[in-house]
Design a protein around this nucleic acid. Structure first.
Length: 477
RNA sequence: GCGAUUGUAGCUCAGUUGGUUAGAGCACGAGAUUGUGGUUCUCGGGGUCGCGGGUUCGAAUCCCGUCAAUCGCCCCA
């Protein structure tokens, strides 16, 4: 030991914080994450989706193919560092051969394309897991977050009809797409509803790229200007009326556009059974389907929903709540599977992130308390074992704990690590853990049992070799 | 990537124009209490004042840089 322990500990004990935009999950937060994931999973399964997952990092090219321009700049780059070529590439281009996944859809399309022939038609898949974006964190947005994805690949009609060209066949396809879109939206709404949210809290804003394209065509806006108009419409609320009108002048007759847009939106709000005078049939059918499923109160037509992703081809939707960013978003991507070398497969899906969702549930008072969460995810102890303080009973505590934990009944059992023999303190600890029962070891063969919820102690004593069974019965196992 | 605000114990925060050894509540540990619960009391552990540099006899306090968080812009899969 030289005389510089201080400088040694300076480097050795240097505290490193978690990276920007990430979260450390202590028990309460871990319980919250598990609860979210389990609820997502439960709703997905109930709606007939099968769970899948992919790697958390992919080859960068996967995202370059068709994710949209903005995405590349916000990829977390990754490389193995094992090959000199790789290192050179990173130095030269600033891009790694891999990227942490920023979204799931490309992976999904890749996975489906690889095995399309053997998969059910339609194929309903969901997943929930971590995703990464190298963005600047702010309210509702972190660099690592959880996302729930639900997708339907294919349609509910025979695959040979998916790309019919005759009028009758096209109508059949359109009907099928509307049903499938509605099915996906229904799953999303079912989750929202299960958390206690209501249509007054959140709305699914539904639009369609093809319908807006049709409307713009009808108004003789040249095709190459459509993208510009989309962006403008998307930002309309942010820009404000005047700035929007100014930006749109020369591109679009705003008054005429609004008149037709409003006409269509009110027809849709009524259940999609009217004629808008241009090709709005897909949205009409979708809203008719939503109406059939009793979801109309959750949905609002909104032709300004554009979504940033380049791969959306038709229906697009977002779940919007006041004062927060979009809670979820999705849409139809009919040519993405083909792009990854699979058969032409219409598809639709959505994703929901945990960050905005958590904020929203907290805002609305719908997020369970930490204590409730521990219970909801099964972290609440069933039994807390203590001794009556005699040496003889003390020596049995760990054995009793082991017996109760073992075997078919396998109870969740804890005991104190404190030195005290004060029964009051130990019971206090038991209730601190929110345990259901306290078992007080009285002698090597017997114990008393107290129900910590009711405060009632069982009459008489229970033989230790009968404890597991009696406790399990009381716990309803 | 840009701008604004903030950063003191595990948490929430005090800390007076720069002045001895940086405080409280909660939480944690021990006891009061060798047999019965979220109460009370006592004692205790715990802080490189985000980090680094500068000004000064002296810095938690003033200045610069940096990291992080929050809010907004850009962007939004």
């Amino acid at each position: 030991m030289s005389q510089s322990p201080r400088s040694e500990s300076k480097s050795a004990g240097k505290q490193i914080q978690g990276p920007r935009g990430t979260r450390d999950l202590y028990p309460a937060e871990a319980a919250r994450r598990r609860w979210l994931l389990e609820r997502w999973r439960e709703v997905s399964v109930r709606h007939g989706f099968e769970e899948v997952d992919g790697p958390t990092f992919e080859e960068s090219d996967l995202y370059a193919v068709k994710s949209g321009e903005g995405i590349l700049g916000e990829l977390f780059q990754a490389f193995s560092g094992k090959s000199p070529d790789e290192v050179e590439q990173v130095k030269a281009t600033g891009r790694g051969p891999f990227a942490l996944r920023p979204e799931f859809t490309p992976t999904l399309a890749r996975m489906y394309a690889a095995r399309a022939a053997g998969l059910p038609k339609p194929c309903k898949w969901f997943m929930a897991g971590p995703f990464f974006r190298a963005e600047r964190p702010q309210r509702g947005r972190l660099r690592e977050f959880l996302q729930w994805n639900c997708d339907v690949l294919g349609l509910d009609i025979a695959p040979e009809k998916w790309h019919a060209e005759d009028a009758e066949g096209r109508a059949e396809v359109a009907e099928s797409k509307a049903r499938t879109d509605a099915e996906v939206i229904a799953c999303c709404v079912a989750y929202l509803e299960s958390t206690g949210l209501t249509p007054a809290d959140v709305q699914v804003r539904v639009g369609s790229r093809t319908v807006v394209d049709g409307l713009l065509d009808d108004m003789r806006v040249p095709g190459e200007k459509h993208a510009e108009v989309f962006t403008l419409l998307d930002r309309r609320a942010k820009l404000g009326g005047e700035a929007f009108a100014e930006a749109a002048s020369g591109l679009l007759d705003v008054a005429a556009f609004d008149a037709r847009r409003e006409g269509l939106e009110s027809a849709l709000k009524a259940g999609g059974r009217a004629d808008a005078g241009f090709d709005s049939a897909s949205l009409m059918r979708l809203f008719a389907s939503l109406d059939e499923m009793g979801l109309l109160s959750w949905c609002t037509p909104d032709l300004s929903i554009a979504r940033g992703l380049a791969y959306y081809t038709g229906t697009v939707f977002e779940v919007i709540a006041d004062g927060e960013r979009a809670v979820a978003g999705g849409g139809r991507y009919d040519n993405l599977v083909e792009l990854f070398g699979g058969p032409r497969t219409p598809a639709v899906g959505f994703a929901m992130g945990d960050v905005v969702l958590s904020l929203l549930l907290q805002d609305k008072g719908l997020m369970p308390s930490d204590e409730e969460l521990m219970g909801l995810v099964g972290q609440r102890p069933q039994v807390f074992v203590l001794s009556n303080g005699t040496d003889e009973a003390d020596a049995q505590v760990r054995r009793v704990v082991a017996v109760l934990r073992r075997g078919d009944l396998g109870l969740h059992v804890r005991h104190s690590y404190k030195a005290t023999k004060n029964i009051g303190k130990l019971l206090k600890e038991a209730s601190g853990w929110d345990a259901r029962f306290a078992v007080i070891v009285e002698s090597p063969g017997e114990a008393s049992v107290k129900n910590l919820q009711t405060g009632q102690q069982w009459e008489g004593r229970v033989a230790i070799n009968a404890l597991a069974e009696r406790l399990a019965a009381s716990l309803g196992k």
